[in-house]
Amino acid sequence: MSEMKKIKNLKEFSTSADRFEGANLLCPGCAHSIIVREVLNATNDDLVLAASTGCLEVCTAVYPYTSWDASWIHIGFENSSTAVAGAEAMYKALKIKGRLKQPDRNPKFVAFGGDGASYDIGFQWISGCMERNHDMMYIVLDNEVYANTGGQRSSSTPIGSSATTTPSGSVSYGETKNKKDMMSIMAAHNIPYAAQVAPNKWKDMVKKIQKGFATEGAVFINAVSPCTTEWKFDPKDTMHLTDLATDSLVFPLYEVIDGHELNITYRPKEKDIVPVEEYLAAQGRFKHLFKDQYKYLIKEWQERVDANWVYLNRREEARV
């Protein structure tokens, strides 16, 4: 294994030479690229990357431009996972046969996909990659909606969110289905490492990404990615929204090792926990929930988040 990049603090991290470039076409304030930067800067090793169709792919590969300074495969909506798995399998085969030109380079294999690409369309492909335990990392940029095609709901869209295919109005509060618990599903493949991350907690994120890179076998990462366009907030507030997401425990940060050992990695102090209502109020997609008719849903939201937090804590305690 190659040496892990040393990142003790933010000053040290800021000496990184980015391998992701500007003048891509992501919206101003888009969290996708903040996440991508934190991931790529976590290592100095060579990278073999792919992205499923979605905002990240479309906006960083507008022919004749590319925003990637690493091997990057332009592929379909559903199969960034298998593209990277294929590259990884080929690499392994060439290594065994002694045919690698630079056998000491130790590249890392990473696929990115949106929640639409991951929770829905590419679901079985990812499942296959995890089950075969490829030595790769799959990262979901979870903005809870099909952002690139205009905000259709996905199975990651949470209850009460107004999406273009589940619009709110006088007879509907928007999405009626619970968000799919992708972390549990992926951990159930008994992969060596799965983790939920958020770009505001960069240290937690870098630690988990480095742990993932050091892991032999399949790694699944779910990254919360606030979308200024579809969540409807001002672009300057992306990090504020991410803070609300982690500090309200709507997006708890934790990891699952070998499919069962769960560790909570960020535990806000009791007094710093933000009411879910504040998280919802900061986003246009939940605006209608504050009408008398739908207010009961805010209470239900809080109860769901509380129950999930209790569940994660009990899982952590039980060590099973």
Partner: peptide, 11 residues
């Protein structure tokens, strides 16, 4: 502090 560096989406 480098907060601006880490959180700027556009390098």
């Amino acid at each position: 502090c480098q907060f601006c560096w880490i959180y700027c989406p556009d390098i």
